[in-house]
Design a protein around this nucleic acid. Sequence first.
DNA 1: TATTGTTATACTCTATAACTATA
DNA 2: TATAGTTATAGAGTATAACAATA
Lengths: 140, 140
Amino acid sequence: MRDPMKTLPGYALRRASAAMSEQLSSRLEALGLRTVEATVLFVIRDNPGATQSAIGRLLSIQRANMTPLAARLEEAGLIERRKSDGRSLGLMLSAHGETVTENAWRVARGHEADLLARVPEAHRAHLLPALRALWAQDAG
Amino acid sequence: MRDPMKTLPGYALRRASAAMSEQLSSRLEALGLRTVEATVLFVIRDNPGATQSAIGRLLSIQRANMTPLAARLEEAGLIERRKSDGRSLGLMLSAHGETVTENAWRVARGHEADLLARVPEAHRAHLLPALRALWAQDAG
DNA sequence: TATTGTTATACTCTATAACTATA
DNA sequence: TATAGTTATAGAGTATAACAATA
């Protein structure tokens, strides 16, 4: 069977992303986390007190979607939300959240290592800069 | 604000894929096609008479999801479905479908060209082989 | 028994619009 | 006026389970 998609980088991008996302999310499942939740935890860890909006902007998550996400992390006892402003909510990790985040980070690093290991060495160093070039600016 | 995701290829992969997918789908919207529908048309064009299942397997689309997808393409007058087997349905492009597929292919090629143009030349040739290595085998 | 197509269903992810309260 | 958070909702995209018909 002929495969017309074989030579299209855009299609390969979509398939590679789906395959790797699925791998990561299945590994994070053991920690009771979804991928987006883990990335939010990582950002909070590096920016304690950052507001929901600021975190959402960094990760391109809509304000409206940050609300249930942060609420779920709070219910799970992973983060605390404190009024920083009257209208803003600053997020920070709880003690338990720090532990879980540490574990999630280990999972994520392992995932990244496995991902890179799959890429032939000749191409490996080119992957990140190539990918970053694709979403750095507006897509037009 | 510190960005812990900056150096993670897996995250860059997800973001790049989302950005590029959105660009392509917004361009295909003018033809009344979604991205998945366009890829199915491309496969049918290269493999006239291929069954729904075979096409789904090539593109990793579940049988259950091929049904409404193919039905919609037929309703739009883009493809015809003929019994090839008693239980199998062979798909082929209609005359109108060939025209639309040709236009969609032009859109897709333009998208791919723009995508590659965004990647610095030093990395460009490495992108496709690196991506293909990521979904060629099972993700484990 | 295995496969094809189908139906029904559900879950994730993301997007939009409208509201409130604060700045 | 603009921003933060919230609520409700909708649309893709994809996944599973069960069924009838056929190989």
